[in-house]
Design a protein around this nucleic acid. Structure first.
Lengths: 229, 229
DNA sequence: TCAAAAGTGTTCTTGATACACCCATGC
DNA sequence: GCATGGGTGTATCAAGAACACTTTTGA
């Protein structure tokens, strides 16, 4: 019992809201808890921050340990510090949100966690702790962010069709978009590169595949360009 | 020495970036440190979170104690957790940013702090800890936020002229705006109420005073309205 | 009467929206 | 040959940008 302080100290955790896009819907990755409190409840992946790692590193590590995910888009979201958000003791949680390509990763592999699964982001079961609130904050952030930062591409395969991209925006923004206007606007940005490939059709016309030109976007950004879909 | 844990725990602080607007420039409120480390360096107001208060409450309390400020616009900004950001031990800081009306408050009253003063936000002296980084994050947030949320009014007197408002936007966005277009757009939003008052002139034409209609804005917001200057 | 800031309209350009049909493929 | 999603252009409307002079006041 070597660590002693004059005043009580809150424990520090990170929790990750991991979004994926699949079957035309925005999904979130949840872990079924194997311990009390909230035994068997679904919760966001996360855990304690170690004394020798930064917050970002802790988020990446937990993601890796609990879901097997690596090389994902990760961004700090908000810090939740209500006094009784954890019934055991005071726990401060730094929440992150992550975007992953469903195609790149095992759907729900895990080492630590008893169980992991994808749920539609707006149709989750009752969550442990204040995780419903965290999820809501993440959804708000994603919806706000996708309109002025090209983060949507993190949710799609590296090669994607314009219809897939449009479906993604429709799912996240929650409204339908006009196909011709959407294509016109996206192509006018000149940030999509048409590949010399098409989808291999399943009883329909093959679609042009594109990739997002990250390098070009970054160089434009430095010149003050703002994405603004 | 009653509080003992199996693993070391980081200390938890809040730091506040307090912005004000004065003399046509964006200012930030700094405190001169009275103790080591960084003795006599300028730093953001802040301090330790108590075991029985939320993060928001801690930020409000520190603001009150160190600067005498009350009833300010306050919003959580970002949490800084680099391992050696405090040379003494591991300290996690939840940063807040605050907007205050210079006219409402004592310029630099303080109880706790040795000394407090306003500096131009982009011309501060060298700051303690990683506070320069925190300040930069706050500036970025403010510049992003002011364009799509009516937070600028928190920095002006409750009664203000359109020229003052324009000057504020110009100072924060760092570019000049066209007077006629600015006025047209702001008035078209129909969120400014013309008061039956004007400035009492100092050798020039008196200007119409306005106030921001917070109630109307909130009711529009609920209907999906987005400010977007 | 001068200095200093307040106030005011129109034109042009650009981007947003609305909208309907033909195409290529696998079965 | 038919079902399925892929792909394309134009006309209208709204908002943004550019731009210069008159007004009111106190000194």
């Amino acid at each position: 019992m070597p660590f002693t302080y004059l005043y009580p100290r809150a424990a520090l955790t990170v929790d990750c809201v991991v979004f994926g896009f699949d079957e035309g819907a925005l999904k979130v990755l949840l872990i079924r808890r194997g311990i009390e409190p909230f035994l068997n409840r679904w919760a966001l992946p996360g855990g304690f921050v170690r004394p020798d790692e930064t917050l970002d590193a802790a988020a990446l590590r937990e993601l890796q340990e609990e879901t097997g995910l690596r090389e994902v888009y990760l961004e700090q979201l908000y810090t939740f510090g209500e006094i009784h958000r954890d019934p055991r003791e005071r726990v401060i949680s730094v929440a992150y949100f992550a975007l992953v390509r469903r195609t790149d990763h095992v759907p729900a592999a895990s080492t630590d966690a008893a169980d992991a699964a994808w749920f539609e982001a707006e149709k989750t079961p009752t969550l442990a702790f204040d995780h419903a609130e965290i999820l809501k904050a993440a959804l708000d952030r994603l919806r706000g962010k996708i309109r002025w930062q090209p983060v949507g591409f993190e949710l799609l395969p590296k090669k994607f069709t314009l219809s897939q991209l449009q479906g993604l925006y429709e799912a996240i923004l929650g409204r339908e978009l006009d196909k011709r206007n959407f294509r016109k606007k996206l192509l006018a940005l000149d940030l999509l590169v048409a590949l010399e490939e098409t989808t291999t059709a399943a009883s329909r016309r093959p679609a042009q595949l594109f990739r997002f030109d990250q390098r070009k976007y970054q160089s434009l950004t430095r010149k003050g360009f703002i994405f603004d879909l």
